[in-house]
Write a protein that binds this DNA or RNA. Structure first.
Length: 785
DNA sequence: TACTGTTTT
DNA sequence: CCCCAAAACAGTA
């Protein structure tokens, strides 16, 4: 059923078939394409797996790989802010806009504005060189990342207010899966399907003007988002619209600055071919490029056509396949919501540090500032890590070394509470780590110190005694007094702490009013809204939640027939996370109960949110494309899984995360969209699954995540969009911020699922479990000694 | 499993 | 290769 006999007996080209596992016989098969007219060929007659034209042909000497162009199944955006640090500085000081501006860190220009670029300044240029090239260059020190970090998160937040599927890549880039946004818009405004593309279309000349309504709509959404970022934050940037992260990122840079480009599937080959070298492929860094070069590979095409077996010899199966897929423009990795940072670190580099005293001082400085940030974050780090970089005459091998240790609970407690001697104790710990690495009896020469808090845990109830209530009442005073430190609060808001972020600090201070309004509103609203899991169905049509109750809500509600609705009274029967014994829960004081259910506890939210990702859209606006969304459902699966799965979760309130994960997987497999058995499905399947997946474990459900995740854009299902829209903008934002808080957990669950392919991956879940258990322990033993 | 190092952006 | 922060891996004992 896969590759058919070769009808043309002119085996001149090599045909690389990325197909399903049954297709092992034709992984490298010679097919004569010589006399075939690219445009006229009926590919069906050659290989039934490669049905729908158009196809992309990758030529390389006498070899030619023919890869089918899949229909658009996801719409992915990539946002890349223009010379980010420079923009931030220009906003802070508009006078800088008209001069060549460079942002300096140590002796390096890390970035510069476009005025400077026109004068020959480039990124990562030595200050001396830059000054020489451009004497008028104005320099601003950029070693303090506070403003950049804050602004960066504002952008992410803004994007997230449209759709939670936002993944950060560094400070100035964001991916976004807007598939559902596109779907919704096309349903609500069918005429949008006929809109032309907004902004540039990559290689429009060569493209056989295929119309891809989803991408076109995506390009409009991208334009709106960029406009919003500009009007609300004053920032400009580029956007790429494509069907994967890889392609979106690559195409985003086609027109700079402050423009956007859409990539049509037909042009993937052109885009990949346009890359000047392997280094240009995201994911191929310096080291990888060097190893590839050692194999004689320098151009993208080299990698595309390199025998996989040889590549495997160098990189191992999984990396080899991934690299080659990247070169081919294939990338099925999902947009994984980033959420709050998993670690906070601070570092400083210097020419030379060789005395213990200096080290002690520097460590204290770093820890002090870190402690500050940690305090605003609100979570509590469980481990401390110290990293050094030693100078080496034989240079080059700059590699860093690090030691880490657990942070005793009693110290950790002090950290979040007001100041104390936590700093001193942490410095002591850090110095202990230091001595594990450096023998201070001998001369040493360090060039960098880094301190890092990781293993961040949500604070336990004891700290915010008033819990939710005080949480909200506290924020008003903080906010009003915050005009000076408002900016520093951003990381906080990223955590969903609902603080000091709403309006941009750049412009107006119209916040006082709205801020006060918000303080009145918020205490009432969230208790109704926050508790319940959300699905996107309600957002699209309120009735839908009745019509299509998701498996997730049944489970969380505790009762299967709990048709969660918008009934306000339902708050009285809040859904319990699966790891909490309802009996015990009932015995808790009410405020503790509330707290447990609040998004302030990611662990708790986990249960809520991970289910929401399972929400499913029953409608199929475009059967052709939809088929691909469901193609993964082919994996082994009980006929009617939904009910057993729901029961399983319900029954196992003490279930381990593994149980949860498995159950969730089951949800994923629920056949929401009819499983069509056509060949197109196989085609896409061949692209979605890497060869590795197929060989290593034919039936893995890898890939489900990416599809399902994208199925969850929108508001909590219990939120009436109308009501929501009538709330003050600030409140809207805060609520969104709050909902978003559940995302980090979503990330965990998704990454776990993603790793489901590797047996080792399961282990990774264990920590989640234990930490979860720990957290809960705190609730039951508030003192926690 | 926890820790350490590597690679990338 | 230098800058900083953060994540994701890979390897290891």
């Amino acid at each position: 059923m896969c590759c058919m006999e070769n009808r043309n007996n002119t085996p001149t080209y090599s045909f690389r078939c990325l197909s399903t596992s049954e297709c092992s016989s034709c992984l490298e098969m010679d097919v004569g394409f010589e006399d075939i007219d690219e445009d006229e060929t009926d590919w069906n007659s050659i290989c039934s797996d490669f049905v729908q034209p158009p196809h992309v042909v990758i030529h390389g000497g006498k070899y030619c790989s023919k890869v089918p162009v899949p229909p658009v199944q996801r719409v992915i955006l990539h946002f890349d802010l223009d010379c980010f640090y420079a923009q931030v500085e220009m906003i802070r000081n508009p006078a800088l806009r008209n001069v060549p501006l460079g942002i300096q860190q140590k002796y390096i220009i890390v970035t510069c504005n476009y005025v400077a670029r026109d004068l020959g300044v480039t990124k990562l240029m030595l200050v001396t060189d830059a000054k020489e090239k451009c004497p008028q260059l104005v320099l601003v020190k950029g070693e303090d990342l506070t403003h950049y970090r804050e602004t960066s998160y504002k952008v992410t937040e803004l994007l997230m207010s449209f759709c939670p599927l936002v993944e950060r890549l560094g400070f100035d880039e964001n991916f976004m899966d807007i598939t559902e946004m596109v779907e919704r818009r096309m349903e609500q405004t069918p005429e949008s399907a006929h809109y032309p593309y907004e902004g540039h279309v990559y290689n429009l000349d060569n493209a056989k003007v295929m119309v891809h309504p989803r991408l076109a709509v995506g390009s409009h959404i991208a334009a709106e988002l960029r406009a919003d970022i500009h009007s609300k934050l004053g920032l400009t940037g580029c956007a790429g619209i494509a069907t994967s992260k890889l392609l979106a990122k690559l195409v985003a840079g086609a027109f700079k600055p402050n423009q956007q480009t859409t990539l049509l599937p037909e042009s993937v080959k052109d885009l990949m071919g346009s890359l000047s070298g392997l280094r240009k492929i995201p994911g191929v860094g310096h080291q990888t490029a060097k190893r590839l070069q050692a194999l004689g590979l320098v151009g993208v095409q080299d990698l595309q056509l390199f025998p996989l077996a040889d590549l495997v010899r160098e990189f191992g199966v999984s990396t080899a396949q991934r690299l080659q897929n990247l070169a081919l423009g294939i990338d099925d990795t999902p947009v994984t919501p980033t959420g709050a940072p998993q670690s906070l670190s601070d570092e400083d580099s210097f020419k030379k540090m060789s005395s213990t005293n200096e080290v002690w001082q520097k460590v204290e400085d770093l820890l002090s500032s870190l402690l500050d940030r940690m305090h605003k974050d609100g979570r509590q780090p469980l481990t401390l890590r110290l990293t050094i970089r030693r100078y080496s005459a034989t240079n080059k091998w700059f590699s860093r070394e690090s030691r880490q240790c657990p942070i005793p609970n009693h110290i950790g407690q002090k950290m979040t509470s007001a100041n104390s001697d936590a700093l001193a104790q942490l410095v002591t710990m850090a110095m202990k780590l230091f001595h594990k690495m450096v023998d201070t009896n001998t001369a040493f020469h360090l060039t960098l110190l880094n301190v890092c808090f990781s293993n961040l845990q949500a604070k336990c109830a004891a700290v915010s005694k008033g819990s939710i209530a005080s949480f909200f009442t506290h924020r008003t005073p903080e906010k009003t007094q915050a005009s000076s430190r408002c900016q520093e609060d951003l990381s906080q808001s990223v955590l969903g702490n609902l603080r000091g972020q709403a309006g941009s600090d750049f412009e107006g201070k119209t916040e006082e009013l709205t801020g006060q309004d918000a303080s009145h509103w918020i205490p009432d609203i969230p208790s109704n809204l926050k508790i319940k899991p959300y699905t996107q169905s309600t957002m699209e049509s309120p009735e839908a939640s009745q019509q299509w109750p998701t498996v997730g809500e049944c489970c969380i509600g505790g009762t299967v027939d709990d048709k969660r609705t918008n009934i306000p009274g339902m708050t009285d029967v809040p859904p319990l996370p699966p790891n909490i014994d309802p009996e015990v829960f009932r015995l808790l004081p009410e405020d503790i109960q509330k707290e447990l259910l609040s998004p302030a506890y990611p662990e708790t939210a986990h249960g809520l949110h991970s289910h929401s990702t399972q929400s499913v859209r029953p409608t199929e606006s475009d059967p052709a494309d939809r088929a691909h969304q469901s193609h993964h459902n082919h994996s082994e699966q009980p006929a009617s899984l939904s009910q057993p799965a729901a029961c399983k979760l319900n029954d196992s309130l003490h279930s381990t995360p593994i149980d949860l994960r498995e159950t969730v997987k089951g949800f994923d497999r629920q056949p929401n969209a009819p499983t069509t058995n056509n060949q197109q499905e196989h085609t896409v399947s061949s692209l979605q699954y890497s060869l590795t997946d197929l060989l290593e474990e034919g039936n893995s459900s890898t890939g489900l995540v990416s599809q399902r995740q994208s199925a969850d854009c929108g508001f909590p299902g219990n939120v009436d969009p109308k009501v929501f829209s009538e709330l003050p903008p600030e409140v809207q934002r805060e609520l969104l911020s709050e909902w978003r808080q559940q995302i980090p957990v979503l990330k965990i669950s998704s990454s776990l699922k993603k790793q489901g392919k590797s047996p080792l991956a399961r282990e990774k879940k264990a920590p989640a479990k234990s930490s979860q258990a720990n957290n809960l322990l705190k609730y039951f033993k508030p003192s926690s000694g």
